Amino acid sequence: MEEFIIFLKLGFDHITDLNGYDHLLFIVALCAIYDLNDWKKVLVSITAFTVGHSITLALSVLNLVHFSTDLIEFLIPVTIMITCIGNLFLNKGKKQSAIFSLRYPTTLFFGLIHGLGFSNYLRSLLGNSNSIVSELLAFNLGLEFGQILIVLVFLLINYIFIKIIKVQKVSFVKILSAFLAGITFTLIVDKWIF
């Protein structure tokens, strides 16, 4: 049980580490279009992301998938940028429902990419361990708890801006997404592989 707690804490610390802010950027970009009333949609989105990265974490740690680390490090900020650009098209009506309908499968796919980014870190922690199931589960649960905490903090900030300060939701989403896209652009340039 002690080892389970250690990996749970490692997963939580990994996602909430400010030095790995690309993960934080993705979670905030993903949740930017939601508010507190959308908590079920947020939970589904975050869980889709966790399922995606759990799959590739497991496949990579078991050496069933091999990839270029440089390519994955480049693709992670690309996923953030795509999410931000999708947020910029948030409007009322049919366009918004189209964005929402693509949100879950896209998030699952992006989770696959992010999972590959986590995999080197987790593989180094596991070393030559024969049984990785409980460690992998604990690490992913820690990631999920950390993501939920980040989402709760973000949704409270969102609530303050939209409900208390009275910023229009569409304006808030677009300004935040443009800001996140600007930060992400520097990551893309920094990780450029072509």
Rank of each mutant, 00 (worst) to 15 (best):
K94H: 14
D17T: 05
H114F: 03
T186P: 01
G127I: 06
H66D: 10
L102I: 00
T186Q: 10
N19Q: 10
K41N: 09
A181D: 03
F49G: 09
T184H: 08
K95V: 15
S119A: 15
H53N: 04
L187D: 09
H114R: 10
I193S: 12
V133I: 13
G11K: 00
Q147I: 03
L141I: 15
S119C: 12
V44M: 09
F67C: 06
L122D: 06
I27E: 13
V153W: 06
A32L: 13
N63K: 15
F118Q: 10
F139Y: 09
L43D: 00
L156W: 11
K41R: 08
F7Y: 14
T56Q: 12
L88Q: 05
S68Q: 12
H23N: 05
F74M: 11
N128T: 04
K163T: 05
I5W: 07
L108D: 00
I183R: 13
F185E: 02
V173I: 13
Y159F: 09
N130Y: 14
K174D: 07
F12W: 07
G117L: 04
V44Q: 10
T50L: 11
I15F: 09
V173H: 01
L88Y: 02
L136W: 08
L57G: 03
L59D: 15
S131M: 14
L108N: 00
F109C: 05
K163C: 04
L10T: 05
S171Y: 08
N87G: 03
V65Q: 13
Q96M: 11
L176W: 07
I72L: 07
K169Q: 05
H14P: 03
T107L: 08
S97W: 12
N91D: 14
N37Q: 04
L180N: 02
K166S: 11
I132W: 07
L122C: 03
V28N: 10
G111I: 02
L75E: 07
T83A: 08
E73A: 00
S101N: 10
I132P: 03
E135Y: 12
L136N: 06
L156H: 05
V173S: 01
L126M: 14
L90M: 08
S101V: 12
N140G: 03
A58R: 06
N120H: 11
V65Y: 15
T69C: 00
I148F: 12
S54C: 02
A181N: 04
T47N: 11
L152D: 06
N19D: 10
N63F: 15
V51M: 04
H53I: 00
I76G: 00
V28Y: 09
S68K: 12
L143A: 04
E73Q: 02
R103C: 09
V61N: 01
F109K: 03
M1G: 14
E3P: 06
I82L: 13
V51F: 08
K40A: 12
F89Y: 07
L116D: 09
V65I: 15
S119P: 10
L62P: 10
T184D: 06
L125H: 10
L59W: 13
C84Q: 05
G93V: 06
T69G: 10
I33D: 01
G117C: 04
